[in-house]
Amino acid sequence: MKCEKALGLLGPRLDGELSVNRERSLEEHLSSCAECRHSLAELADLRDALRMLPRISAPERLHQKIYAGFQAEAARARVHPIRHLLHPLVTHAGALAIGVALALGIMFLPKTTDGRPESFLAAHVASLKNEQLTQILASDTHKVRPWFEGRVDYAPIVVDLVDDGYPLVGGRVDLIGRQKTAALVYKWNAHVINLFVTPTDEGEKFPVTEGTEKGFNYIGWRARGFRFFAITGASGNSLRAFSQALQARLHIPKPPASSAKRMKYQ
């Protein structure tokens, strides 16, 4: 093998991309050519230096933005099947379409009346009317969360969103169906957002529900073992932004430990 050819194979050798035969003939050449050995050592040094350069990570805000965007896309992706099935139902009214739609409809319907938007709507309206919006008035999550102890039979997730423009005002306990439910109260401009947090064992497969009822916008989703249901008189867009901000804070993916992973390849 000539040096010219050997030099071209040094990189692939370091990368472990040489065939057995080629590697063998390269080794043969290297054993007799000090110059090419020198070049290989130099190349290896360069590679090692490159691999030791610090890894930059994406800024936290980018992680959050991407996660929120993903949640929004995921929400749309989950809602779609129902929407798609409703159309053939109306236009074609095919027996099969109806059957499938009904079957899916039953699958996607909340299993208890407690989870229906109407129950939350009633609670929302009552909270505004009775002027008993909050039973505990505190913006500190460490005050609000313990307050629920003994008042509801679970420990709700309480997240402050003041940095996102939705200050936490306080909390109260509402009776939704027959269940005592933690309600968190947030403000957005002049509007009140009631966020109902209930434990659920149905995982996160439940579709995001979103809609308008009697002029109030609502959005419901599941995360971290809880069902979240937010309702407000503010616009649907601001409610969606609220839910995205909350979801971003509920789940921020950890950056991968790329340096640890890298060791395997050395």
Binding site: I56, I66, S258
Partner: peptide, 8 residues
């Protein structure tokens, strides 16, 4: 989602 840093 674990590859946000690599993408960045």
């Amino acid at each position: 989602l674990p590859h946000i840093d690599a993408a960045y």
